[in-house]
Design a protein around this nucleic acid. Structure first.
Lengths: 188, 188, 188, 188
DNA sequence: GATGAATGAGGTTTCATTCAT
DNA sequence: TATGAATGAAACCTCATTCAT
């Protein structure tokens, strides 16, 4: 099984897809993805049975990368504030470092090509994170809102921070810190 | 006066476009839009010179509807809390009543087909709203964050509320009220 | 029968067709012809049963105008030189005065839309001219070439003169005169 | 080496285009060209990026073929009569042998799809011919007419000869020879 | 008689995918 | 395995023509 070589080209397609989807959305063509990957369009279909499959694989890989990073040094025994802050900082660090991956991830999230199975798969990687978010839901105003609300709100606030960072490159660390303070204020 | 009929079909295309774009994004085809409108595809082009023109017209009509509702009874002389709450409640009322229009609006907002002129046009309708959001930016933690942050954050929080409402149809009024409380907490 | 009014609009369509065909060829659209005529596209079809019919009518009218002008003061009793020169000068005068009509006429001549019947009709108007051309065919080198050759050659030479005039607006009279001298040289 | 097959299909498209354009002009559809070539319409676009590109390539190939034939045994050191006769005979030989190519070439020459760059390219191939035609312009009656006139007149006269040949298949050689005599008479 | 509205047919081009090599 | 070649389906859009008013 010549896995090694395979993986290189496979990754080339995935990397190219990230760049193209970030630029033009999921409706970008397989031709453009292959061209950017420096490979033939038909070769794409030896690694992925269809464009839709490529999209789903990519979605999973992108989500996995974030959750692996968050899980690696997750302070499972620390207090709620520390754990929430870990999630906040880790997610934003990824968003700042890999703006294209984040953009592509958002495009994929909205795409009809992403199946329910794919969405479910991603949930499996986010156990620790979800546990913390559930705990957040018992705090302050969140007690009176549905369980998922805290997670949704945090994601939304992170989007706001990233949008600001994209617009205003300086003081990323400050924006991230102040943003978390604003978020945490809701939990008190 | 063939105006009446004219407008009817035109509206049929716009309504069909809302539904299709909400379902499949702006890359949906003119064929599908026309089919849903119950008219021939070529007829679409007697009402709109191009698909792009249809998208821009639709974007303006959707945005206008929201801002007209917000402006109609805007409490311009009331305190900041009242004005912010007006915007929060008004926007969410529209989002709840017209989920497809909101989804379509979000898709359109991201589309490359929407021109700068179209975006500028909608800015003109949102003067009062933008004034209030600017004032919010001078409050609490927002003082230490960029000017646009309060508006971005409010939009993000509203997304969270609407997502919750979509998942859990009951108690919309409560969700909206509690959601604003959570948001306002950030401003103190 | 409200002929008068009819004729006005009919002529408007024909005039517009001349201009559009001169500019863009016979594949120009009925929409563009009608727009230039200042009338509705569908009105065109109350005057002509089809686009093809319009083209054929126009071809006949254009050819008739030339031959009527040539026939009006045709020096039927003069010598061959005078008659040939009359044809030469008359045709070129029209070509110079009505460049669009000439261009349209050339486009129509090549079009598959022009029927054999239409082409035959035109022949009927050109009796005098053809008689003179036949006589030319008995002169000099033409004697050893097919009967039609003299006419074809004259048309070709006129095209050359008109092309020159189009390129070089001055000295039209000289170009026309010298051109005929060149042509006549062949007949000696 | 998949070149062989490549070129075959490419030539099939070009040959089909010649036939269709000769019959119906440059407004013929890519569907008809492909059908005549015995290939799928979409395949056409793997050989030519657009219909316009196909037209330009075809124009260049047709013109090149003529000029290459003329240049191959061009009697550059012979007298003016011999050189003019070489051009006359060579051009007509091609016109007689390839009537469709000639018709297509004429259609292409008038088409708006042919770019200035394409026209410039063909000028480069016609240096020897243009030099001879310029010299012709200093002879006889041509001295008193614009520089381009001799070339335009020769082209026009050749049209006349070819029209005759098309009508009357016999005695091509005689028609060509006598036709040149008629033309040459103008130069004396 | 004149027209706005409507449309089926057809235009060029792009796309995801298959297949032979 | 990797790919050039091929293609049916579908994209957006234009056109000549019909029809109700």
């Amino acid at each position: 099984m010549p896995r090694e070589k395979n993986q290189e080209k496979r990754q080339a397609f995935l990397r190219a897809a990230v760049a193209e989807i970030a630029k033009s959305g999921t409706e970008t063509s397989t031709a453009r993805i292959a061209r950017r990957a420096g490979l033939a369009e038909s070769t794409l279909f030896t690694y992925f049975p269809s464009k839709s499959a490529l999209l789903n694989v990519l979605y999973i890989e992108l989500k996995d990368k974030v959750y692996q990073a968050l899980n690696r040094d997750f302070p499972a025994d620390a207090g709620l504030y520390a754990r929430a802050r870990h999630i906040w900082v880790g997610t934003l660090a990824w968003g700042v470092k890999s703006p294209n991956e984040r953009k592509a991830s958002l495009h994929l999230h909205l795409s009809n090509a992403i199946t329910a199975a794919t969405r479910a798969h991603t949930d499996a990687r986010s156990v620790e994170v979800r546990k913390t978010m559930a705990e957040l839901s018992t705090q302050g105003i969140f007690r009176e809102l549905p369980t998922n609300f805290s997670a949704t709100a945090m994601g939304a606030m992170q989007d706001a921070v990233l949008e600001e960072i994209a617009r205003n490159r300086k003081d990323q660390a400050v924006l991230i810190a102040k943003g978390f303070e604003a978020f945490w204020r809701m939990c008190l």
